[in-house]
């Protein structure tokens, strides 16, 4: 039954992927730009939803891995002339390795302490990059060669987002989901049943970090220039988190809904630059207050059957 649902998800994802893959041939440049942004944010949001919505690790460390991916990608491109697929694979590995390196420390922390620990990690990495001249210091690094054209970058972002969505589908639709939810609900009780909570959390953390690092790499190549304040900026963390909360935390479709909403809202409000942020804040407050399960939660109440991954 569960596998049946998984194959359904796979089908939809494959269909969407094929459809979107050919978007550059009929969509406008603007639509492509927006889609690129959606794919990057979707990857971040899916990863954050896996960590927080499913495993229960409230992370404020998204920026650490975006920055890591950016710097690793530039190192590979500038020093070795690596092609993008290679860059993505290495960045994913780097993200997973960093996650594995810091997890012995971070996983000792529970609840709000884990959260501030991840926040401190991002701040620490940013400060280190600013001060270490090896990595360009505060001036950052420029890509030596021109980045590939938008259509090609779009395909990279789309592929990363597909990998992220596939991974989340597997986490949500297979027996893995039972284990993940057990760890989130009651770590001790799960351990008493033979689940190794540390490994489960580490696997989720490494997976999310690998995905985020890949998104960071694509975004950095798109920019052509990186420096610590932008690459390790808190804004990445806040974006991922607010998109998932707006979309509906813990819901399978929450990240997608949140990303679409926030990106569209940003575009619509961009013509009022002075008030843009304040209006976003007001909308955020109203949504949190009156749509507790986010956009998806709101819609789900209208349907009887729900596609809920798990309750928050």
């Amino acid at each position: 039954m569960r596998l049946h649902r998984l194959s359904g998800d796979m089908g939809i994802l494959a269909g969407a992927f094929v459809l979107l893959w050919f978007a550059p041939s009929f969509a406008s440049d603007y639509a492509l730009q927006i889609s690129f942004r959606v794919m990057i944010y979707l990857t971040l949001a899916e990863s954050w939803n896996l960590l927080t919505g499913s495993v229960g690790l409230v992370s404020l460390g998204t920026a650490s891995f975006v920055g890591l991916g950016s710097y690793v990608a530039f190192g590979l491109a500038n020093h070795f002339g690596a092609p993008i697929p290679v860059i993505l694979v290495v960045c994913a590995l780097a993200g997973a390795v960093l996650a594995a390196l810091v997890s012995p420390a971070l996983f000792r922390l529970r609840g709000v302490y884990f959260t501030v620990g991840t926040l401190a990690l991002a701040a620490l990495l940013q400060l280190l990059m600013v001060n270490l001249p090896t990595f360009g210091g505060a001036s950052g690094i420029f890509l030596k060669h021109d980045p590939p054209p938008l259509a090609s970058l779009y395909h990279d972002a789309l592929s990363v987002a597909l990998v992220a969505s596939l991974a989340m589908a597997i986490c949500a639709r297979t027996r893995i989901s039972v284990i993940i939810r057990a760890v989130r609900d009651d770590e001790d009780a799960a351990a008493q049943m033979g689940v190794r909570p540390y490994r489960v959390k580490l696997a989720a953390f490494a997976l999310a970090s690998a995905l985020i690092a890949m998104a960071g790499a694509v975004q950095a190549i798109n920019l052509g220039a990186i420096e610590p304040y932008g690459a390790f900026g808190l804004q990445w963390t806040i974006d991922a988190l607010s998109m998932v909360i707006i979309g509906g935390i813990g819901w399978r479709l929450g990240p997608l809904a949140g990303v679409l909403f926030v990106v569209m809202l940003g575009e619509m409000l961009a013509n009022y630059p002075e008030a843009h942020i304040a209006i976003t804040g007001v909308i955020l407050i109203v949504l949190i207050r009156f749509a507790p399960g986010g956009i998806v939660g709101m819609f789900a109440r209208l349907f009887t059957r729900s596609t809920r991954l798990s309750s928050p």
């Binding site: 969407a16 959606v38 679409l260 619509m268 059957r305």
Partner: peptide, 25 residues
């Protein structure tokens, strides 16, 4: 399953609509 499908459709429609709105004429 059908719900998921519906939601995806709704998402795409919503996105398309929003994009249409923001196209600066």
């Amino acid at each position: 399953m059908r719900k998921l499908h519906k939601s995806l459709q709704a998402g795409v429609l919503f996105a398309a609509g929003a994009l249409g709105l923001t196209q600066g004429a």
